[in-house]
Computed example of a mutant assay.
Amino acid sequence: MMSNATPTEADEDVLQYPAPSPVVHYGEQALLGALLLVPEQLKTIGPLEPEHFANTAHSALFAAMRTVSPPTPEVHRTSPVWPNQLLDAARPQARTLTASYLHTLISICPTDAHAPAYAHMVRSGHARRVLRQHADLLAQAARAPGPGPAEAVLTRSDELATYLVELVTAFPSHPGSMPRTSEAPRPTAERSAEAEDDERMLLATATAHPGELLRMRWLHEGDFTNPLHAALFTSLTALARSGAPVDPITLLWEAQQKGLLRDGPGPAEILDLLTYPVGAPEHWGQKVVQRALLRQAVAVADRIAALTADEATSVHQLAIGSRRTLSALSAVRRRWHEATGSLPRTPPPRQAAVSLPPPVTRGSPAARANPGPRAPARSGR
């Protein structure tokens, strides 16, 4: 017979969340309560996997439901065979799971007839968490030191794009499909000594070889981290494209005409910046556009993270908003391919599986229901 033992005070501390439970947590509880009450509802909830649950004890309990054959309806109505079997099967993965918590799950569920709706909540919560993981992995690739950061960013970007296609297919559109989350402020480029040096070398070599600028249309003013460098690049490009004479003195004159010396460095500092070319403009330009690619990847990841943090945003809205955000990165990556002479990647197959680390779960294996237990669920049959 199913035990009615009450957890000890120490168990209560383990079972409760350290922070207020998210709404999807109650959806997980209601779904499991419905399935405990009426095992036949497993046939109505659609595609659902144990990893779709955020709570480890809930995941273990649902995995047991998928593997343990439920008793006949007649046996289930008169004996707690089903809950006891599930408890025995789930405890190796969730040792703090108790019989009293299964009673709590049943009492939390308003009616088993709504099990498909609860399952949809669980799938939505999982989709939100996985999308956030993709965003975090993209940001991590952009910030990680080491050789070939652009390739790592492109790989993560392709994985994110594939997952967004899956979300749009799995979660249909509805009125108001565009996300309502406020746009994040435009990111400011972080200036560093390395970035400053690369941009100075680009300006010096381009001033010495202005003809090569005509073949570097893939480099934009917005790729620079230093506003003065960006303005000098714009002036230099205009001179080269108009066929005007280009050297440090003519560029200095152009900078003065555009007011760049008004509140910035003096003429001697500008000349010093332009006078010592090393290497080729294309080499330094590639470094500048790669840095812009990484910077845009971080901005995309931050925006998607902000969308997933807004729980009022539906999964379809998340997918649409994230795809629009990702298009900004696609524009920079096209220029990166032009700069490096590499061929754009073939989009990954629509059904391609994306390997991700396990979903981030809450710290405790099972959560104490809050608010407290209600009246037992009413069967919808």
Rank of each mutant, 00 (worst) to 15 (best):
Met1Asn: 06
Met2Ala: 14
Ala5Gln: 07
Thr6Cys: 07
Pro7Gly: 05
Thr8Asn: 14
Thr8Trp: 05
Ala10Gln: 12
Asp13Glu: 10
Ser21Cys: 11
Gln29Ala: 15
Gly33Lys: 15
Pro47Val: 07
Pro47Asn: 06
Glu49Val: 13
His52Asp: 12
Phe53Ile: 03
Phe53Val: 07
Ala54Asp: 03
Phe62Met: 10
Arg66Cys: 15
Arg66Trp: 12
Arg66Glu: 15
Thr67Phe: 06
Pro73Phe: 13
Pro73Ser: 02
Pro73Asn: 04
Arg77Ser: 15
Pro83Gln: 01
Gln85Trp: 10
Ala89Arg: 07
Pro92Gly: 14
Arg95Gln: 13
Thr96Val: 14
Thr98Ser: 15
Thr98Trp: 14
Leu105Ala: 05
Cys109Trp: 00
Cys109Lys: 06
Cys109Tyr: 07
Pro110Ala: 04
Thr111Val: 14
Arg123Gln: 13
Arg123Thr: 15
Gly125Phe: 10
Arg128Gln: 13
Val130Ala: 11
Gln133Cys: 15
Ala135Lys: 04
Gln140Asp: 10
Pro147Cys: 11
Glu151Thr: 07
Glu159Ser: 03
Thr162Gln: 00
Glu166His: 12
Ser182Ile: 09
Pro187His: 01
Ala189Tyr: 07
Arg191Cys: 15
Asp197Gly: 09
Met201Val: 12
Leu203Val: 11
Thr207Tyr: 08
Ala208Cys: 11
Gly211Asn: 13
Glu212Gly: 07
Glu212Phe: 10
Leu214Met: 04
Glu221Gly: 13
Phe233Asn: 02
Thr237Arg: 14
Gly243Asp: 09
Pro245Glu: 11
Ile249Cys: 00
Thr250Ser: 07
Leu252Val: 14
Leu252Trp: 08
Leu261Ala: 04
Pro267Lys: 06
Leu271Ile: 15
Val289Asp: 06
Leu293Glu: 01
Arg295Cys: 11
Gln296Cys: 06
Ala301Gly: 01
Asp302Tyr: 03
Leu307Phe: 15
Ala309Glu: 14
Thr313Gly: 04
Leu318Asp: 05
Gly321Ala: 02
Leu326Thr: 02
Leu326Ser: 02
Leu326Met: 01
Ala328Trp: 00
Leu329Gln: 00
Glu338Thr: 02
Ala339Val: 02
Arg345Tyr: 09
Gln351Met: 15
Ala353Gln: 13
Val354Pro: 00
Val354Trp: 00
Val360Asn: 08
Gly363Ala: 08
Ser364Cys: 07
